[in-house]
Design a protein around this nucleic acid. Sequence first.
DNA 1: CTGTTAGCGCATTCAT
DNA 2: ATGAATGCGCTAACAG
Lengths: 333, 333
Amino acid sequence: MATMKQVAERAGVSTSTVSHVINNTRVVSDDVRERVTAVIAEMRYIPSAVARSLKNDRTHTIGMMVPNNSNPYFAELIQGIEDAAFKVGYNVILCNAYDDPRKQAAYLRVLIEKRIDGMILVASGADEELARLLAHQQTPMVLVDREVAGVQADFVEADHETGGYLATRHLIELGHRAIACISGPRDLPPSLDRVNGYRRALAEAGLDAPSGYLVYSNFTSEGGYRALQQLLKLGKRPTAVFAGNDLMAIGALCAASEAGLRIPSDLSVIGYDDIALASYSTPRLSTMAQPKYDMGQRIVGMLMERIMGSAQPLRRELLQTRLVARQSTAAPR
Amino acid sequence: MATMKQVAERAGVSTSTVSHVINNTRVVSDDVRERVTAVIAEMRYIPSAVARSLKNDRTHTIGMMVPNNSNPYFAELIQGIEDAAFKVGYNVILCNAYDDPRKQAAYLRVLIEKRIDGMILVASGADEELARLLAHQQTPMVLVDREVAGVQADFVEADHETGGYLATRHLIELGHRAIACISGPRDLPPSLDRVNGYRRALAEAGLDAPSGYLVYSNFTSEGGYRALQQLLKLGKRPTAVFAGNDLMAIGALCAASEAGLRIPSDLSVIGYDDIALASYSTPRLSTMAQPKYDMGQRIVGMLMERIMGSAQPLRRELLQTRLVARQSTAAPR
DNA sequence: CTGTTAGCGCATTCAT
DNA sequence: ATGAATGCGCTAACAG
């Protein structure tokens, strides 16, 4: 791989001149500029970002840690972020923590070694190692969806409590009174916030939910499938279900269908996230849309401000979700 | 951020000694080793991979270019790759080309600047720039699913032709004779290979497909949805459909349902990929499973061999797909 | 308008 | 068993 020195020699100029024509950072005579440019093309010289980073103390790389890239919510979020980052000249290193705090800490360490300029963290639980690494680290960072104890950083999330509230309100307004909830893991704040919204809506409407109506599962289709099977065993079946994410809602749709229930006439189901496939499930899924694209934009925007050295106080951005009523919800019979 | 030099000073040793205790690369007295280790911990020193890369000419980073991370097939593939890479001490920089050859070329250039050790490319069309960059580049690379004209590199794919053939055979064996095909874009070889397999199976069974039975669309749910609507307008409706990927199959399921058709009694649908959600569509989707995890392992394995300097001839790995019969296919009435 | 030089943080050769 | 010195490829301050 050609180096700048070789280019300089071949063009009969100094490396600093080559550097300046590449970066347009000082005046260069047309004559010389042309010659250098020609040599660069001829030798197919491509500058080394590694050397440049060492010199400049900037890698133009950000790290993105997510629990699981296979969850379409994260995949879509990542895409928005990768997109926004590319536009401002940044690349993203993707890290799947698989909800394993140890793996997450190991990754974080590697990212710091690589001297990423900034970090986007959708945390998978926090262990000591993580907290310690983060505590003494001043790498610009924005936390998404999940705060980390003891870590001071900008934070972005879509209002889960209100989302859960609005989803449940939607069901109530359709006339449902027996409304169950399939929640994500009980140790994840976003899950709990959504459940809190669900509860608030019920309380406000003077409804009460039998204890069996709230079941915790994990954020997968299988989780939703099993949870609905469990709900269907109840003596008094719910007429509507609020699922903590679309994956679970789709699993619930599947279980309902296999149990011979018609959606939405026998059972209404509403999800959360509005992943791309929610528009094409059978039937099309009603859901609370998270502004994933907007979130990606803002997350990158906030991170860039920090990277550029903004010293403003920590920010918390609370975005709003939006009800998307499709075919999986209707009035009870 | 602390540097090795600072650590050395504080520990009262030379930088070379610090380097050696960190990398365990020469004998160091227990006394000194302990002292250095203590100072490292105390100063929270974390070595710079940037400087190390400049020196060693290795970044322990690979670039991964995909058309679109939001397609679950790619998301799951990425996950396997990222997983395998992590195990051997590599990170992956994710690049979404959005089927835009120009963006792809721009990304590639950046990756080369960053001196990635290897590249995994699921190409989005090839433009001149890409070919030129690649042609004169000896970065280890493995191509996935799509070859690039003029580029010599290892290649991995799951046998699309056989996959299409087996999917169609499955339908034929169930007794279908009017079998349509919803294909992906006509400019993508994997699409065409699957169509070829479809045709071969039909021919072998002595069946012919009216021209309207083959419709090209794009690899999204919406694409499948629209394509099925189009098929349903035909005078002689098919009794079964082979969709080029699961996203399209799920879109087709949605369209069929909205048209009042029952799956699989009125219409059988088989997809391709076996994305996680295929197990939980309504009804559960029959599909050709691509060995995504295995592919990820092999892709990374091959790439690592190249990175380690293996000089063996170019390889083509053709993995096999597997029929997963679920509830969306059955005998015609 | 252009060249010389120092140094970014580290690994490694050569001495001792 | 340890240290001094060099250079990886680049940018930028300084000099002319």
